[in-house]
Structures are given as structure tokens and as C-alpha cells.
């Protein structure tokens, strides 16, 4: 049943593109993005009307970044999966109220961050899990094990940050967003985003320094 739905999606995208106004020049809504099989604003418009394949296509495009952000914010893969699932469901529920002029990715990222915060409140204090594939213990794997230990230490240092600092840091360092974009997502000014990221860096540098010395 899925294939005919996908074919229909292509038809609906074409029909929708004829109806919808084109994004204004200089708009932050690109007409299309690499990896998306239809312009983002068309898929958003279809999904807002309840089109499940259009929503699925949007989520497929955004899921890796959403999961990366959730993984670094929650510190473990189980919580990250729960947070992303909850965020995508909330996005589906909230789409009718989504204002098109805001960038969809910004809006979705904000929902992911909120889900991570809820996840954290619901669950035990953050416990850092390894997010890498386990390797069997042989002498040849020493380097891999050491690498995993370093990853775990770095993730632990991130998990010890306050939620505000962690959100800004993860968005800037791991999602590669500018301070202006981080500010838009977190609802703060660009300079406030810069300050939070900087304080996070100082705290992490101090924690990692202690870890290396120990």
C-alpha cells in the first residue's frame, strides 16, 4: 500500500505547487533542499492538511539531525529515541498551528529540545550510555575501546552542563548552527546564545581537563 501512496504524493506535490505562492526572494524557505524530493514549504502545506506521506517525507529529511541533537542532549540512545518520537508526534499534532513564515526546521528543532527536557524531567538523572556499537574484547580493539571511553567522557562533560547551556552548545557545536540560528530556536538573542555557548565551552574544558589528568 505504501508505493501507491508515494506516487500520489508526487501528484499532490505538483498540484499543491500550482496553488501555493512561491517563496519570496530572500526568504529563509528554500524552494527545495538537497535530500528532499519536493520543496519543503509544499510538503509542510500538504502535511498541515493531514497528508501523512508528506509528513513522513519531511521527517525522513530531518530525522538524523533531530536524533543527533536528542542524543547529545539526553546523553543516551534510548532517551533520544523516545524524545524524537514524542517530538515528531507533537509536530504532527501542532502542524495545524504552525506558522509558515517561520522555518520548519527551526520549529521542529525547538520541539525536539522541549521533548528532551520533558524526557529528562520524567526520567532518572542523566546517565551517559555508550552510543557506539559494542566491540568484542581483543587486543586489536584497544584503540576502539579507548575511543569509546573518550566519547563517553566527552558526552558526560556535556551532560553535566545546565539545560540552557547544553542546548546552545549542542546546537552550535554538533548541529553546526550559527549563534543567530541557535538564538532563534531557543527564543533568545544572538548575543545571549553566544554567551551560553561560551560558558558551556569553559565548563567543558575544565571538566575534560580534570578527566585527562585523572
Amino acid at each position: 500500500m505504501r508505493t501507491p501512496l508515494r506516487d500520489n504524493l508526487a501528484d499532490r506535490v505538483t498540484a499543491s505547487m500550482e496553488r501555493l505562492p512561491q517563496p519570496a526572494r530572500g526568504s529563509d524557505r528554500p524552494a527545495s533542499r538537497p535530500g528532499l524530493r519536493a520543496p519543503s514549504h509544499v510538503l509542510v502545506s500538504l502535511a498541515r492538511g493531514g497528508d501523512e506521506p508528506a509528513f513522513e517525507e519531511l521527517m525522513r529529511f530531518h530525522q538524523d539531525r533531530a536524533y543527533l541533537i536528542a542524543l547529545r542532549l539526553t546523553g543516551n540512545p534510548h532517551d533520544a529515541q523516545d524524545a524524537v518520537q514524542e517530538a515528531f508526534l507533537n509536530a504532527w499534532r501542532g502542524l495545524p498551528r504552525f506558522r509558515d513564515e517561520a522555518d520548519f526546521g527551526t520549529w521542529l528543532t525547538r520541539i525536539v529540545i522541549n521533548s528532551c527536557h520533558h524526557q529528562r524531567r520524567r526520567q532518572r538523572p542523566t546517565e551517559t550510555f555508550d552510543d557506539t556499537t559494542p566491540v568484542s574484547a581483543t587486543p586489536a580493539t584497544d584503540l576502539i575501546v579507548e575511543g569509546q571511553q573518550r566519547h563517553r567522557a566527552a558526552q558526560q562533560a556535556i551532560s553535566e552542563l545546565s539545560l540552557d547551556q547544553r542546548s546552545a552548545f549542542v546546537l552550535h557545536i554538533f548541529a553546526g548552527l550559527t549563534h543567530a540560528e541557535v538564538g532563534r530556536i531557543l527564543g533568545i538573542s544572538e548575543s545571549a546564545a553566544k554567551v551560553r555557548t561560551h560558558r558551556a565551552r569553559r565548563a567543558i574544558a575544565a571538566t575534560m581537563h580534570e578527566w585527562e589528568e585523572s
Binding site: Y67, F88, D131, R150, H151, A154, A157, F174, M208, H209
Partner: peptide, 20 residues
Amino acid sequence: VWSLIDELAAHPVQAPTHLL
């Protein structure tokens, strides 16, 4: 010290296939 964060940032992360 910061190389640990750089290594973590360079580590590829993909959403599990069953999630969507």
C-alpha cells in the same frame, strides 16, 4: 582537551531505522 569534543562531533550519528 578539546580533541575529545571534536572527535565526538565528527562521529557520524544516524537515526535508528525503526524510529520513523
